[in-house]
Amino acid sequence: MIELDCRGQKCPLPVIKLARNIGEVEVGDVVRVLADDPAAANDIPAWCRMKQQEYLGSPAENAFDIRRTH
């Protein structure tokens, strides 16, 4: 798992960082995004849906887990 610290960044920056770094993990592995912009909780799952990646949920406040599926 890798962790992307996007705290303090406004959307769409956390989603851009996620998109640029999802390739760093193997298919099946997880990326954790730390983001405190209020839009992140909505836009990270939306990105997963649009790009057919798997959104695993929010394990803690301002943290979002995504599994690379392809």
Binding site: K10, C11, P38, A39, N42, D43, A46
Partner: peptide, 24 residues
């Protein structure tokens, strides 16, 4: 309805309720 265009800096509650992308 993007948050950066709102005075509240929150995304539109309508887009959030629908679960659709709110930026751009």
């Amino acid at each position: 309805g993007s948050s950066c265009t709102a005075s509240t800096l929150r995304p539109s509650h309508v887009l959030e309720a629908m679960g659709v992308l709110s930026h751009g």
